[in-house]
Nucleic acid binder design. Structure first.
Lengths: 99, 99
DNA sequence: AATATATATAGATATATTTGTATTTTCACC
DNA sequence: GGTGAAAATACAAATATATCTATATATATT
């Protein structure tokens, strides 16, 4: 028995969630959606000036990790933040720029 | 001018900090050091059952991103959390397991 | 200075992530 | 059913990360 009990599964889970938001483009998406905005994939990839497929890929990562939710309306699919605590975490990290 | 002003440098900075803690082993290190503990590299790599070089590598990443501080005492170098807000962030992420 | 211990670094390999291009699916409308 | 728009998926290439083994550096002790 180690002095420190390692729960690999728990660590992987926490890491995978953090990894989901550890990317400049995905942080940009989160910031873009902050303020309870609901935007379509087209609006998002045009605002961020990236390929449609790239946007779709990042949106999928964020959704699969529970950061975003999506709702179809006709041909469009609107993405939004599932909770704004995420925005707060990003803000917090940004504020810690004192190193 | 885009509707959304993108500050790449700021996004990269935030992402790089998040990436620093987005790894199971590095989260384990943070948890191991939480509670204001000061541990040597040897204590850390033995507790986590990883190679010395691997531990050194992760410790360096965490230190260079301002997560950890280190202080030499004789032959040993002790690492500690620079601030425990990091632990709080990890806790918060862990608590959000409701997806 | 020689030796032992603690940590860091280098280099190679393996693995994961990101991105672009092309294709496919889903839906609305005619 | 055919067509066009919106989004997702597949695949390949480029890039980044992680890990191992080996080696180097720093410090203390004799």
């Amino acid at each position: 028995m180690a002095k420190f009990n390692i729960d690999i599964a728990k660590l992987e889970l926490a890491a995978s969630k953090l990894r989901a938001i550890s990317h400049p483009m995905r942080i940009a998406i989160i910031e873009l959606l902050s303020g309870d905005k609901h935007l379509s994939v087209t609006e998002i990839y045009k605002a961020l000036e990236i390929e449609q497929a790239t946007a779709s890929h990042h949106l999928n990562i964020l959704k699969s990790k529970g950061v975003l939710i999506s709702k179809r309306d006709g041909k469009k699919i609107f993405y939004a933040l599932r909770s704004n605590t995420l925005t707060e975490i990003i803000d917090c990290i940004n504020r810690c720029n004192d190193n």
